[in-house]
Amino acid sequence: MSATFQLDGEDIPFTPGQTIMQAAKAAGVYIPHLCWHPDFPAHGSCKLCTVKLIDAHGGRFGSSCTMEAQAGMSIENRTAELDDKRRTLLQMFFVEGNHFCPSCEKSGNCVLQATAYELKMMSPHFDMFYPDRPVDASHPDVLLDFNRCIMCSLCVTASRDVDRKNVFAMGGRGILGRKIHINSESGRLADTDFAVTDRAANICPVGVILTKRKGFAVPIGERRYDKAPISEQVKEPTA
């Protein structure tokens, strides 16, 4: 019998070294997340997967994608307290970028959007930033629309560790200064060896890295998150 911990009162088995997130995913239990991807080491930056570890002193918050599972742990996940905090984080993501779902090819297949539906985000709540983030359409096969970037850095990791190309890097400071940079003299994607077949070309959870000439291929109503909420697709492969 393998060791278990409790997630919202449910026993979740785990193997030593697994994180809370990995064990929950294997058990088919949804923990909201944006920057975590099962194929890559945790980045721990989006904080959507924050859970509450109940201990003798009450409880403390931690990222479930970096917290190692221990036998006997008692973890809170989908409580009103945590989902309220997650919704606020989502609202900050939505106001600091330009997330116009009606004109986005990723709509219906977007992890940010599906997570916001799951957490019943009815409005952005805060004042909008409307930042100026030019698109990079230089590459023949791939469009980069940075308006939708949430700085998960999955493209950075995939390009560096899988494709061995180092096409992307995160740089700059502050909400408006920090951004994804392209590793070429000109700063344009066309001047890198990036290819549409790269792992990094197919890792973006939102609508930044898009294959050209493929937009709106699946009709509304048949897209991934039209069919079922993201919380019911934990066992499905992540893009």
Partner: peptide, 18 residues
Amino acid sequence: VAVGACAINGGLPAQRNH
């Protein structure tokens, strides 16, 4: 009640904002 994308986040007209 704010009805629809434009009332909620500016929507398509707000794409002139930059």
